[in-house]
Design a protein around this nucleic acid. Sequence first.
DNA 1: ATATATTTTTAGCCTATCCTAAAATCGAAA
DNA 2: TTTCGATTTTAGGATAGGCTAAAAATATAT
Lengths: 220, 220
Amino acid sequence: MELTTAEENYLKAIYHLSDGGKKSVSTNDIAAEIKTKPASVSDMLRKLGDKEVIEYRKYYGVNITEEGKKRALGTIRKHRLWEVFLVEKLQFAWDEVHEVAEELEHIQSPLLIQRLDAYLNYPKFDPHGDPIPDEFGDVKARPRVALNEMELEQTGQIVAVKDSSAAFLRYLDKVGAYIGARIKVLDKVEFDGSLEILVDQKKTLFMSKDVAANILVQQS
Amino acid sequence: MELTTAEENYLKAIYHLSDGGKKSVSTNDIAAEIKTKPASVSDMLRKLGDKEVIEYRKYYGVNITEEGKKRALGTIRKHRLWEVFLVEKLQFAWDEVHEVAEELEHIQSPLLIQRLDAYLNYPKFDPHGDPIPDEFGDVKARPRVALNEMELEQTGQIVAVKDSSAAFLRYLDKVGAYIGARIKVLDKVEFDGSLEILVDQKKTLFMSKDVAANILVQQS
DNA sequence: ATATATTTTTAGCCTATCCTAAAATCGAAA
DNA sequence: TTTCGATTTTAGGATAGGCTAAAAATATAT
């Protein structure tokens, strides 16, 4: 059964909020995510339930079905492939692509996506470092490495810290290295293993090997 | 003022049916073009009139305004740029691109189109040989040449015949060289000036120089 | 355990776009 | 010029998606 653009957007939101289908999701949370009113969400949930892409029990939130998961992953795949296209071929900055990809992801043409995928050389990750599901909906888990183990020029996103003491987090905060920050290794000093890092394509930052060893990066 | 997808489609249809704004267009003709009912067209014409992209006098058909022309040309530009992309970059056949381009043409992002244009190296014609309006809505008139004057490998579309005798047309019909046919010069025989032509990317066709001299081609 | 607060749903309404059936208008022929 | 056929518009209704206000159900706190 065909989904409308609005339905695809709801399903994608539910997929994300449910952490890939692991948790159930509330009406209010969906409304906040989609920037719409809870009443509108209730309406849509009834429809998505009828189409069996979610399991909907009134007042108890929704769970995404296997079919729904497949659909959501299809939309996510399209979104991320378009993001790669925009950044790699059309020179968009990585933070300019989201809105346009939001539109492009609803174009209906399996052939188009197949060809685009090939044209981009079957990328596994989008410009934000998020994995691109393959045509079957399988996603490649992104390897996580300690920042000090990364090579020159490599890029990634800070996803976790090993040392979560207040002191360490306060330090990270001060230098502007938050969870989610996009980083690139600009330099590694042989002598002491300290690094020069580009954060969010804006500011550079020096850190010791010890600090870097406590920062986990999801590579792109 | 923003136009919806439906409004853009109506405007594009009116633009084409009016031969670029030269003639006025009837409700019935629009309905046929859009594959909708005349009653729906009346509705939409009122709206487009309110938005001043057409001039609408009940019962007397519509004329497109300058503003409307500009909008229509913008949509046509996007459509044709996407067609070039699909054919040149994603290896679509020239007759597979229309439906997808119908969807892509409604993506709203001036930056996207600007970048796409540059990426495609500012093409002047789409894969069907139709001219691509520039960002100001100006279109380059396509030169027409006699088929016998074309060079090897050149492509184009048959747009007219010099000799329109029944005999000649019957001959063209027999060999499958109709007005609108997409052709490519595969070979030119030095000795007698006869040609080998690829028609519609499917069948090849041999013709004498005399025949070719009577066929006018719009080059791409 | 009951009262209150929060969440969710329902009811009713709006706009966009489409439809069918009926009414209005136009234009051409007698 | 009157009438008749074709075209066009209007009227009224459907569906998709959104909104507000009010009702209903659930969750929480005393």
